[in-house]
């Protein structure tokens, strides 16, 4: 994220402001004439690549319009629509199955994503600010430990955390999913880097001279300037929580508490041959499509934020 400007000074662009493709400083300085030249080979390569990445998505859209039997032997093959379009019927079945448990799972996913996202972001902003602005004993050691923690695989913690929470009687509750998800060392690291690069110490000094207390300076002076980074860290943690599978799979039993990933996984497992369950493939497929839509839309709308976030960490 650090670029060398024409006068040779290394600067870091604040995340979230950088990646707007239309107005980004990177694109603005590009010699457009040379680059706009037609490059058929490169474009063909891109079209083929994009086609590969969209293939399962296209299949999903098509399959969600098919009934359970048409999935197996519908006309026109699996990559094209059947003569009967059962999309609405699938949606109705999906919404009514087990008293509408699908929407409950969606709601749970949203709840887990928002609570752990907001919680982890608040902690990351506070800690990142503490690390960036204050020089205290043990700071460097604490920060080194934090950097090491980024490399501890989260799944290695699931089983001991499960035993710990089981002893506390907290497994199979919402807490068991939300509390461990508050841990986000990478978020703290990102916030520290961002604050160091974007908040001039003179600003804090001036506020102190004016007699503002430390907490007031943070809340009134610094926080408003951090908005792009806050949104980015929030998005990244929310997506991680929405996608989480191992943790809720281990922690939860009650069908009413499951997030959508675990819930659909159960339906898929029940439908599989030999499990003896009722085959609800059309619900698995339609459910998968419905669950993906909000995230894809959110990503496309908020692309300037996530691109900022992806570049914010460590990218030099």
């Amino acid at each position: 994220m650090t670029t060398t400007t024409s006068d040779g000074v290394a600067t870091t662009r604040p995340a979230g402001q950088q990646p707007d493709p239309a107005h980004g400083p990177g694109t603005a300085t590009r010699p457009r004439g040379r680059r706009a030249a037609l490059r058929p080979g490169s474009h063909l390569f891109l079209v083929l690549t994009a086609a590969y990445f969209m293939l399962p998505v296209w299949w999903l859209v098509v399959a969600a319009t098919k009934s359970n039997t048409a999935l197996f032997d519908g006309a026109h093959g699996s990559m094209w629509f059947d003569d009967d379009v059962s999309f609405v019927d699938n949606l109705v079945q999906l919404s009514t199955r087990s008293d509408g448990i699908f929407w409950r799972w969606m709601g749970n996913s949203l709840f887990y994503a928002v609570t752990s996202g907001v919680g982890a972001t608040v902690l990351a902003v506070l800690a990142g600010y503490g690390f960036a602005v204050y020089r205290f004993r043990g700071r460097n050691l604490a920060f080194s430990i934090l950097l090491g923690a980024v490399m501890v695989p989260p799944t290695a913690l699931v089983i001991p955390t499960f035993v710990m929470l089981a002893n506390a009687g907290l497994t199979d509750t919402r807490w068991a999913v939300v509390l461990p998800s508050l841990l986000n060392p990478l978020g703290v690291y990102l916030m520290r880097v961002y604050i160091q690069d974007s908040i001039p110490p003179e600003l804090l000094e001036a506020a102190r001279v004016d007699g503002a207390g430390e907490l007031r300076i943070f809340a009134r002076v610094v926080l408003p300037l951090l908005r792009p980074a806050v949104v980015t860290v929030l998005l990244l943690t929310m997506v991680a929580a929405w996608n989480n599978y191992f943790l809720p799979l281990a922690m939860l039993n009650d069908p009413d508490l499951l997030p959508i990933t675990v819930g659909l996984g159960q339906w898929q497992r029940l439908s599989s041959v030999g499990s003896g369950g009722e085959q609800v493939w059309n619900l698995v497929v339609t459910g998968a499509l419905v669950s993906v839509v909000p995230l894809v839309v959110a990503f496309l709308c908020l692309q300037r934020y996530w691109r900022g976030g992806l570049t914010m960490g460590g990218v030099k």
């Binding site: 969209m54 990933t261 675990v262 669950s291």
Partner: peptide, 9 residues
């Protein structure tokens, strides 16, 4: 786009 699709899905 696939990044926006949960790994499980």
């Amino acid at each position: 786009v696939p990044y926006a699709v949960p790994a499980v899905i």
